[in-house]
Design a binder for these strands. Structure first.
Lengths: 218, 218
DNA sequence: CCTACAATGCTGTCAATGACAACAATGATG
DNA sequence: CATCATTGTTGTCATTGACAGCATTGTAGG
């Protein structure tokens, strides 16, 4: 993305001719540096992992000087935080799209589980960031809010099932924790190659089944 | 920093007196650089996190030159791998100590779960390393073996319970995945401050209970 | 129009770091 | 004692994150 026809020399030279009317024009300096950086960062993240993500290389990829990112992100961690936030955003969308409040609990939970697992596998490196422990009070707040929005999907499904008498009573938050832990654990195992991707997707049914009916013989 | 009341001066001076019969003797230059590095690394890891772990600072802490660690660890990742391996070692010990094959399934699983959660919380940063995705074929093998040893505890408990008819039949590996995922998910949530430590320890009982009996009303 | 001013980008620089090469000391081996 | 493998040391490099100071662009007042 943002091929950057390169060389600022050209840019400086062409600047007077401002009538090219390209909608993708950059108002002045770069236009969308912030978004460009985030986009490029996410690609690098996906392809080479968090460890190989450097602000300077990012700047090079996008075609700006090595200090330009500093105008949009106080430091590297700030960029990572922004990345994580956008991750929660998309995850919430994915869960939203997969959730059908009209369904009975088991298929509803299965759908949510599939969506979560799918997102986790498609964005393993991003998840690492999203679940990274931070201690900065500012960022932590936003993260917590984002997490709540995500967990909210599960919790609503649980609460609805309780009201319909489909599952046992009890603090919905507690039951949600159980269900969420199982799903997250499965995703975590899979992201770490301890379980094959296809095996994990196949295991979703089974996990939900066992969660609902338990391991004891009936 | 580097208080280092210093040992090598003493070592060099005392070396001739080789009759002290200390099993922890250092053959020559430093003696136990490798273990010293690992120990120091783990302390730093616990106190300041993976990100603030530098080979050079480690070398300073231990009192050797900045390149000395290179003799024992090809690169930083090699050190981290070794750290992770030792983590699996201790985790296996913890699980071993907590496992009582004579117990019925529910209390046995509860004990294992407590042990796992306890280890996870006491070694959150280490767990990050242990569960980090690596792509080096060599290290990956050792990791996989270590993981198997750990999961083995769970799987044995599951298989034993099946033989006693305490839980349903089915591929023990599959059931173990369900149980393991739930426990790991809980540990992961807690390590990331999404669940309070005491709440998590308290939730263990509940999680095991729900795993066994399911969420459906009976 | 022309001059502050804010936003955004650039060049320059620094200290820290990981990796490596060349060299030195130590102890084992024959 | 001579040779050699281990293990450490010093020296050096490129990369990186962070920061300071300057330049460019667009905007707002006069």
């Amino acid at each position: 993305m943002v091929p950057m026809q390169s060389e600022k020399s050209e840019q400086t030279a062409e600047k007077p001719a401002a009538q090219t009317a390209q909608p993708e024009t950059r108002p002045y300096h770069h236009g969308g540096l912030r978004s460009a950086l985030l986009a490029s960062a996410e690609r690098t993240l996906r392809e080479k992992g968090v460890g190989s993500l450097s602000l300077r290389e990012l700047a090079r990829d996008v075609g700006v000087s090595h200090a330009a990112p500093g105008r949009h992100f106080k430091d590297k961690q700030a960029l990572l935080n922004a990345l994580a936030l956008s991750g929660y955003e998309r995850m919430a969308q994915a869960l939203d799209a997969a959730d059908d409040p009209g369904l009975p609990f088991q298929p509803r939970l299965t759908a949510l589980a599939r969506a979560y697992l799918g997102f986790a596998l498609d964005n393993a490196a991003l998840l690492e960031l999203m679940y990274a422990r931070k201690h900065e009070p500012d960022a932590a707040e936003q993260m917590a809010a984002a997490v709540d929005r995500t967990v909210g999907h599960l919790e609503r499904a649980v609460a609805a099932a309780q009201q319909r008498g489909e599952i046992i009573d009890g603090d919905p938050a507690h039951l949600t924790l159980v269900v969420g832990a199982a799903l997250h654990g499965l995703a975590s195992f899979t992201a770490n190659d301890m379980v094959a991707t296809d095996a994990a997707m196949a295991a979703v049914e089974e996990v939900v089944q066992h969660l609902l009916h338990g391991l004891k013989p009936r």
